[in-house]
């Protein structure tokens, strides 16, 4: 059965692996280009705790920005669609094509049990690509490391989904869900379309849920001082910053009523603010959140596989 599944889907698996490999090579090139640029501009050692050391060559930062910041802004937008695209394109036709070409009449009348057929098809195709995307996520994280200072924290939506382990988890989920839809709808295009729609709902929902999964950190300091490394470590995902009155109520200063010279913190103090408060997800939460989200995706993928098992057992051809 394994050989048959491989022979049926080897084109899909090999081309997926090829796409992932090409992107991986591009990322290796990005890292090499970044480190050599940093060396060439004399910026080695200038990035301390995510901030430029003021003693480093003036203007070098903007040169680095010119070279890499547009690439860094579209890279996560491109990478974020990769797991779902591969997932639905490989998972949608997995069994739907058998129903479309009616070859299930051949496959299911040989001596292979239905449960085994479903499980082997999913495993032979899903596993190699999942492993490839897990690896790719780690490579993305590694490749952007030297350019840390130019791009938002990896806890920010965009990078969070495209670094670490979640890419593999998202692929597995999209793949299993599309395979299940293909089994139920018996239609490749329908499975692909519905799979994409489900993903477009799921990813923003998960991003919105992320701050509520683990406790966020809240700090308070004198107005105008909270957004420094002492209080909010570099790499945090800041959720909220605001002034507070002595009673702890939020203060929204009216900046048109400020005195001269203009200073927002002083202005806020004039209007009753006694402290500035920040709420953020600390960088230490990156890996726990990655593990939780990947685990959730794997669990949902397992549910899809299980529902598929119930469906194939129904014997409606």
């Amino acid at each position: 059965m394994t050989w048959v599944a491989w022979r049926q889907h080897r084109t899909a698996v090999l081309s997926s692996l090829g796409v992932v490999l090409l992107i991986g090579l591009g990322l290796v090139a990005l890292r090499l280009a970044a480190t050599s640029s940093i060396r060439e501009l004399g910026l080695t050692g200038c990035l301390r705790d995510g901030y430029f050391d003021p003693g480093c060559p003036a203007g070098a930062q903007s040169v680095l920005e010119d070279r890499f910041s547009s690439l860094l802004s579209w890279l996560p937008q491109f990478l974020i669609v990769l797991p779902v695209l591969l997932g639905v394109l490989v998972g949608g036709p997995l069994v739907a094509r058998e129903f479309e070409q009616r070859t299930q009449l051949f496959t299911l009348t040989q001596s292979v049990g239905r449960a085994r057929w479903w499980a082997v098809e999913a495993a032979v195709v899903g596993m190699p690509v999942t492993v490839a995307l897990l690896t790719l996520g780690l490579v993305v994280g590694w490749a952007r490391e030297p350019l840390y200072v130019l791009s938002p924290t990896r806890l920010e939506s965009g990078w969070f989904e495209t670094t670490g382990l979640v890419m593999g988890g998202y692929f597995l989920l999209a793949f299993c869900a599309a395979a299940l839809l293909g089994l139920v709808l018996r239609n490749t295009v329908g499975a692909i379309a519905l799979g994409v729609v489900a993903y477009l709902v799921l990813v923003p929902a998960l991003s919105m849920l992320r701050p509520h999964v683990l406790d966020t950190t809240v700090v308070s300091a004198a107005p105008g001082t909270v957004m420094t490394d002492t209080y909010v470590p570099a790499g945090s995902r800041v959720l909220d910053v605001g002034y507070r009155s002595a009673a702890g109520e939020p203060v929204s200063p009216r900046y048109d009523q400020c005195g001269e010279p203009f200073n927002p913190a002083t202005c806020a103090e004039e209007q009753g603010a006694v402290s500035e408060r920040a709420e953020f997800i600390p960088p230490s939460h990156y890996w726990p959140l990655q593990l939780i989200e990947t685990g959730l995706a794997i669990a949902l993928a397992a549910v899809a596989l299980l529902l598929g098992l119930l469906q194939v057992r129904r014997r409606v051809i």
Binding site: Q101, R102, T103, L105, F106, T109
Partner: peptide
Amino acid sequence: AFLSQDKPLYRR
């Protein structure tokens, strides 16, 4: 053994 009407086999 069963032989189905349209003799579906893996085309590729």
